[in-house]
Design a protein around this nucleic acid. Structure first.
Lengths: 153, 153
DNA sequence: ACTGAAATCTTTGAAAG
DNA sequence: CTTTCAAAGATTTCAGT
């Protein structure tokens, strides 16, 4: 999949996962190359899906999303129908920023972003009314120490 | 902080947190406005820090980062010196994509992205040799069900 | 604050070293 | 692969409404 990633590709990705606003010319300079090769490589990496998407990261606090919860979920139900309904519920809810199925005794972890604790409760009540869940632990974030989408390339 | 966010600003942000690649003209069309106002609003929201940054999201699997762990950390140490060293260690390690200080009996949660379980162990050993940690639970992600940076605007 | 047009810079693709 | 060049398109500024 990640065939033939060389040092130049790596440098370009390091730059783009920090900041996509500089021009191709500036990126080319910062990685020690020139416009055309850098542009061609970016295009190829977009086509291959190595670059999944390009997005703006917004300030959650400035926009009034002051509460972030990590939700640990245990379930007794493991049949296909239940799982399908559960995944659907997670994907449809915009409050759920991340959802992972886990190995071990905790089955799922969610990251949920809401304006306040009250809004979390509304989300939580809606979720458990949609699908049966055995056990839920909510961890409330007091401080976001670090948050990056960058991979450690 | 988020003073006077109107419906047009909201629509622009909804678009940009999904995809920053369309031109201002296309964005303007999709939100029912025209180039100049959209451009001015984006500029203001960048200046105000509502738009924090613009980045490329990469495909972790395609780049060989096949393991993702959520790490729950309990500590007995709560003095300022320990905390400073711990936060420094987290911020310096590129494997740590997220770090939150929590309310409750678990003190911190980390999201750690590495090529494989072996690389996680290297990270873990390095971390506990740098700072004393009372109790650590690692939750291994088997499947990323959902992953978005978008706020539920 | 929005419109529309003008100037500037970027992206895109082709051609050649 | 890189450099150069030119056309097409986007961004940015500015005057007018």
């Amino acid at each position: 999949m990640a065939d033939r990633m060389d040092e130049l590709d790596r440098k370009i990705l390091l730059q783009l996962q920090k900041d996509t606003t500089p021009s191709i010319e500036e990126i080319a300079r910062s990685v020690g190359s020139s416009k055309t090769p850098v542009w061609n490589r970016i295009r190829k990496m977009r086509e291959k899906g190595i670059i999944t998407r390009e997005v703006a990261i917004l300030d959650a606090d400035a926009l009034g999303f002051e509460a972030c919860f990590f939700v640990l979920i245990r379930t007794s139900e493991h049949d296909a129908g239940w799982q399908k309904a559960f995944l659907k519920a997670l994907r449809e809810r915009a409050e759920v920023q991340e959802a992972h199925r886990l190995a071990g005794d905790i089955d799922y972890i969610l990251k949920v972003r809401v304006p306040n604790a009250r809004a979390y409760d509304v989300f939580y009540q809606a979720l458990i009314s949609e699908v049966k869940i055995h056990n839920v632990t909510a961890l409330l974030s007091m401080e976001e120490i670090k948050s990056t989408t960058a991979l450690p390339l």
